[in-house]
């Protein structure tokens, strides 16, 4: 049995359960939460340890591998985990299938779009010429 195949035998036979699936989603939410625990503490500690938060200092920091790589991982994991969590809330409170699909799709587009813009900005900072 894979990690994600977590519904009970009886549950599978009846095809029940609030979302008909969910093991992968549940595990993914936990794994990303552990990653965010580390990356979030890293982000706050890094910002506190910078000598200043002006444009030049922050830019220089995000041009180093130890600044840019964890920040990229933070952006990806945070959008992933945020989308995961919002899906749980939507599935809990929006029961009408059409509205549920529409809201989950909207959140998916917002998350992927937001992550895209954040990563583009980060790439521009990391790989762009010196300001």
């Amino acid at each position: 049995m894979s990690l994600g195949d977590s519904s009970t035998e009886l549950g599978k036979v009846r095809g029940l359960g609030s979302a008909r699936e969910g093991g992968e989603h549940w595990i993914g939410e936990r794994v990303s939460s552990i990653a965010l625990l580390l990356l979030g503490v890293w982000l706050i500690a890094s910002l506190l340890m910078l000598p200043a938060l002006d444009h030049g200092t922050v830019r220089e920091w995000l041009r180093t591998p130890l600044g840019a790589v964890p920040m990229a991982l933070f952006v990806i994991t945070a959008f992933y985990h945020g989308l995961d969590g919002m899906k749980v809330v939507v599935d809990d409170y929006v029961h009408e299938p059409g509205n549920n699909f529409a809201l989950n799709t909207l959140l998916l587009f917002l998350a992927v779009g937001g992550a895209g813009f954040a990563l583009f900005a980060l790439a521009k900072i990391a790989f762009g010429g010196a300001a």
Binding site: V75, F117, A118, F120, A121, L122, K124
Partner: peptide
Amino acid sequence: LTLAGLAALTWWLLALA
């Protein structure tokens, strides 16, 4: 955190870039 926090993070990175 998802709605306001990630929006602020993205805004901050775009401004920085």
